[in-house]
Design a protein around this nucleic acid. Sequence first.
DNA 1: TAAGTAGTGGACCGGATGGTCCATATTTGT
DNA 2: ACAAATATGGACCATCCGGTCCACTACTTA
Lengths: 230, 230
Amino acid sequence: MPIYYMMPIFSRTRLMIRNQGLIYCTERSIIKRMKTSPGRPLEFDPDAALTDAMQLFWRKGYENTSMQDLLDAMQLSKSSLYQAFGSKQALFERCMTRYGDFMIGQLRSALDGAPSGVAFIRRFLESVLDEARGDCEARGCLVLNTANEFARRDPRIAAAVAEGLGRFHEVLLTAVQRAQREGDIPSDHDAVTLANYLVSSMSGLKTLSKAGADETSLRGIIRQVLKSLM
Amino acid sequence: MPIYYMMPIFSRTRLMIRNQGLIYCTERSIIKRMKTSPGRPLEFDPDAALTDAMQLFWRKGYENTSMQDLLDAMQLSKSSLYQAFGSKQALFERCMTRYGDFMIGQLRSALDGAPSGVAFIRRFLESVLDEARGDCEARGCLVLNTANEFARRDPRIAAAVAEGLGRFHEVLLTAVQRAQREGDIPSDHDAVTLANYLVSSMSGLKTLSKAGADETSLRGIIRQVLKSLM
DNA sequence: TAAGTAGTGGACCGGATGGTCCATATTTGT
DNA sequence: ACAAATATGGACCATCCGGTCCACTACTTA
């Protein structure tokens, strides 16, 4: 017989909490974790829903995205969303991770397929031009947008931002080191500094693009950045 | 006898509108503008209040600053604020202009007092370190923050951002041209491109600083930026 | 002092916000 | 068939949002 039957817990609370696979005693400490048991199956794909949420946060930012927006985009009811993701902020944190996975995966394979480290770096920087040309929305980069929106106001978000930036840095570091091995970037340049520099440059380009800078100006900046690597 | 006495306007409306020095006919078109006449004087300094508002928007961004926050910071009542500034957005636009005047003034006098164009540029870039060191809040730059928050969503705000960036660009262009005259930057570099590049670099540094980058990384990036000018 | 003018505090507004709760529906295990 | 587990739709919540309105107050001029 399950232990919670013996506990003097208000029945509604007990039921709700069992609902999430946990049992709490009245002091709210966890006394037992149940393994997930069968029940009514989800009617939506949590993975696809998460991607939808990510796209929305990416375009509109955290504060400017309302729960209603999310509900519409993810096409699920409020209870389902809260059941599956807990809160707006928790959902956002998962979106940040998802974004990192998504972008880093793309960058890694682009780097692997690139003819040279420098060619990859050039294409990386030039990706900002697509947005500036206006054929797609200037939504920037979710990680950088979040850094700007939150600064260090919330420690959890700050950590997510730092992790995201770290992953970008890592890919760029690999690219710089490869370019050094290939002889395109002098070996006496500090690769870590150059990777930082590239993250910073990309960030500046994204912001200027959002501010409406024209393609010619952005190209000039990119040329300058590339020149300074050599 | 004033014209509005002869107009069949609901008396309350007429009173309110005379209050703002305007008389509207029922179709809401302006039929007469009165010159401001004596009355009860303001109990606050609109200039100081505007500065307070600017500081708040600067720290917290537009969406994340509520009217209540503004009321508290500016220390005036809702009616006074709306009477004096019209709306949150109108107030924000005035804050943007105020910020531009404030910062550009500072930069200009710093440039005038600097021993050389390059010295000014170095100090300009290094100003980001103050925030990163943590002795003051990492609030970034109001213009760049706004570019990131709004992208091109609102045309009026976008125009204000573009104007603000343009003014920064102008000062940096002057600095670059001076440095070229002084022989520190080669004359065959395009000064306009370099000024753009400096705006972009500053933007990147600010974002990274907000994201919590350590001083050493930022110094490395600054060194790289300066090197690329020469 | 009366008339005219303008500023202020605060009540009030409709609507949106993020979040909770519950009755009900749908599944699996016994 | 029935109990247990989970999902879902939607009503509901307090709070806050930007903004309006009005009674009252403070001031200037004639």
